[in-house]
Design a protein around this nucleic acid. Structure first.
Length: 640
RNA sequence: GCACCCGUAGCUCAAUGGAUAGAGCAGUUGACUUCUAAUCAACAGGCUGCAGGUUCGAGUCCUGCCGGGUGCGCCA
């Protein structure tokens, strides 16, 4: 459909050029909700009417007359409503082209741009929670969409291994629990252990300023590499990071590179950036007496001074982030060292930055992106905007334009959910619409717990439906279904919709849910499997729709039309930063398939021509839905 | 105080400025001797927070108001 629309647009422009001023006018198309309005519709007449000051309806009539019979793919052009131009396609031609595309492998356009997607970036001091899951699911699907469209994609996960958050739990382990490093190493599930400890020490810090001061002292000692704090910090950060990587691997989410803040610091990335920032006058000493000795950047949009270098000479988070993002665009003039970190079960390596050359560094290079997506929640908008501003001020407008904050709203908990988890609501919270998740307050649903809970529910459902299944196989199916439920739930909302998390909704496997989508494909695969067993070739059959009875033909055609939109849908999702539109597209296709499935039997159809046409449609459905779902990280189980 | 986001069916959410505002859940009713009922069909449910404006056309854009959320730290 994408090629057809582009061609149609060009044809129309050429045909109308003599009569109308077409510069800057690009005909755009949509599929009308009602078939009586044709297969494709354009509002071109309204656009031109505005330019010329004439009546849309009259203009549309004239345009239709000029186009009638001159467009290769179009049977008829009609005017409807106040001036809509509706196109009726040559259905058999279009259908034949769609069927042919099934036997040709998908070839995205070759693109030179390299895209870097940063997502996840969880503080390595406790287990991941539902808030992080939204980030990772969005980021991973975003990366998959970019790959699908032909971009080279590198997925990075930024690890703040030197921040105060890690220092909090280091203090808790060493000075509160009074453990030594050996004892810490023996803690079986460190991330989960720290989940509790992190919440506990933060309660202490809030209540006792002396303890909070101790925590800052621990942080300082870590920065000075003093023992035992430094080694403990390294151990904690690495173990918890490994825990996060494993959690995300359960969801089929992988990273290419783990970029550590400690390496940004050790390799003096900021120094390189600072020289440039000072030269260009972007960063300067603060004139505010309250910020004496600080280096600041004036952020125009918010009309504020943001501290980049503290009066004690240390660099703030934003400063390090500016340097890191300059590196992503290869604008820093420096590079990390690299070392292998982990190998995924499918054999893909995951690399970590290093401050020293490694014995066996990876063969590939990292960074040097032309476009950068930072998947970070909306609460960091102003810092992300500041970085974009700095890129421009440093003389890199193209990098500034290609620096994209992929912003999304937070995940929160409903008050009912907080109560259900046995946590206490503070005064006034009962009447709130939702309550922010907070690792620091221990108020969140742990990612691993939620995944496990989804797997358990799937297992009950799978076992009930397939009692003869071996447990190992049932578990495998349950896992795939649980992942679909979670990943679909995490991307189906608009980015600026706050997800007020609720177990009942997240654990729903019916209707607008991941398992619903899988179920449609499982049924459709079952038809294809039986057809293959009966030696029916789904790719053969009639070239036109004529053999279908009239009532079916219209529906069949509408389905072909919607199935052809896949590539347009992916591009739309990427352009508008709305992966939810892709989820909605997948859901719509599955609904359409289920509807068709109930109306028209495939294998039982006695007329061979009709049977082959239906089989062909089933194959088209399989191809498009499976591709869409793969972009959302959803696999299809063998049975359900 | 300033900035950003949100307000659509009982609930949770959709709807590139486009034709009669759609789904799921919950409710009522019906469909498994049939390619898997994690499904389908039907009914019911709406002053799209309020008031103006822009235009061929507004849930969508602009202004004001009401209600809710978030951000603005020598934390990250």
């Amino acid at each position: 459909m994408k090629n057809l629309q582009e061609k149609l647009g060009r044809e129309i422009t050429v045909l109308l050029e003599d009569a109308y001023e077409m510069s800057g006018v690009e005909p755009s198309f949509s599929i009308p909700a009602e078939r009586k309005f044709g297969d494709l519709s354009t509002t071109l007449a309204f656009t031109l009417a505005k330019k010329t000051g004439s009546k849309p309806f009259m203009l549309a009539g004239d345009i239709a007359a000029r186009l009638q019979g001159k467009l290769a793919a179009v049977e008829e052009v009609r005017v409807a409503g106040g001036g809509f131009l509706n196109f009726f396609l040559r259905r058999d031609d279009f259908f034949t082209a769609q069927r042919r595309s099934l036997t040709e492998p998908w070839a995205p356009p070759a693109r030179k741009e390299k895209v870097i997607v940063e997502h996840t970036s969880i503080n390595p001091n406790k287990s991941a929670h539902i808030g992080h899951l939204r980030n990772s699911c969005l980021g991973d699907s975003l990366a998959r969409c970019c790959r699908f469209l032909g971009y080279e994609v590198e997925v990075q996960n930024y690890i703040d291994d030197t921040g105060i958050q890690v220092a909090d739990v280091v203090w808790g382990l060493l000075h509160y629990r009074r453990m030594d490093l050996d004892a810490i190493r023996r803690i079986p599930d460190l991330a989960a252990y720290l989940w509790e400890l992190y919440a506990e020490v933060n309660r202490l810090f809030a209540a006792d300023e002396a303890l909070a001061a101790q925590r800052r002292e621990v942080h300082r000692r870590i920065e000075e590499k003093a023992e035992p704090e430094y080694s403990t910090c390294l151990h904690v950060a690495e173990q918890v990071l490994l825990d996060h990587v494993r959690t995300m691997e359960r969801l089929d989410i992988q990273y290419d590179l783990l970029a550590r803040e400690s390496d940004v610091i050790a390799l003096d990335f900021f120094k390189a950036a600072a020289a440039e920032l000072a030269d260009r006058g972007v960063m300067a000493p603060s004139s505010d007496p309250g910020k004496q000795g600080c280096l600041v950047i004036h952020y125009d949009r918010e009309k504020i001074e943001k501290i980049i270098v503290r009066s004690n000479g240390t660099i703030t988070y934003v400063g390090k982030d500016i340097a890191y993002n300059l590196w992503k665009f290869d604008l820093l003039g420096r590079d990390f060292h690299y070392r292998p970190f982990h190998v995924y079960s499918d054999g893909r390596p995951i690399v970590m930055t290093a401050s020293q050359p490694a014995a066996s560094p990876p063969a590939r290079s990292f960074g040097r992106g032309q476009r950068v997506y930072n998947v970070i929640d909306v609460r960091q908008s102003y810092l992300q905007n500041l970085i974009a501003q700095v890129l421009v001020q440093l003389g890199h407008p193209e990098a500034g334009a290609n620096f994209i904050h992929f912003s999304y709203e937070m995940v929160a908990l409903t008050p009912a959910c907080v109560r259900e988890m046995g946590l206490i609501l503070e005064p006034g919270e009962e009447s709130k619409p939702y309550i922010e998740v907070s690792g620091r307050k221990g108020r969140a649903v742990k990612a691993d717990d939620l995944i496990t809970r989804l797997e358990e529910k799937s297992l009950r459902e799978v076992s009930a439906r397939n009692p003869e299944l071996a447990e190992a196989e049932a578990r495998l199916l349950s896992h795939v279904i649980a992942v679909a439920a979670l990943r679909y739930f995490m991307v189906k909302f608009n980015l600026n919709t706050v997800i007020a998390f609720d177990f009942k909704e997240a654990l729903n496997f019916e209707g607008d849910s991941g398992p619903y989508l899988q179920y449609a494909v499982v049924r459709l695969n079952s038809i294809l499997k039986k057809a293959a067993a009966a030696d029916l070739d789904a790719t053969s059959g009639a070239a036109g729709l004529a053999p279908l009875p009239e009532g079916e033909r219209e529906l069949y055609w509408e389905l072909v039309l919607h199935l052809s939109l896949l590539e347009i849908q992916v591009e739309f999702a990427l352009q508008n930063h709305e992966l939810s539109s892709l989820a909605t597209y997948a859901y719509g296709l599955c609904q359409k398939f289920n509807h068709y499935y109930h109306l028209f039997p495939v294998l039982a159809e006695p007329d061979p021509a009709r049977r082959y046409l239906r089989l062909g449609l089933v194959l088209l459905f399989k191809n498009k839905i499976e591709t869409t779902l793969s972009l959302l990280g959803i696999e299809i189980p063998g049975r359900m």
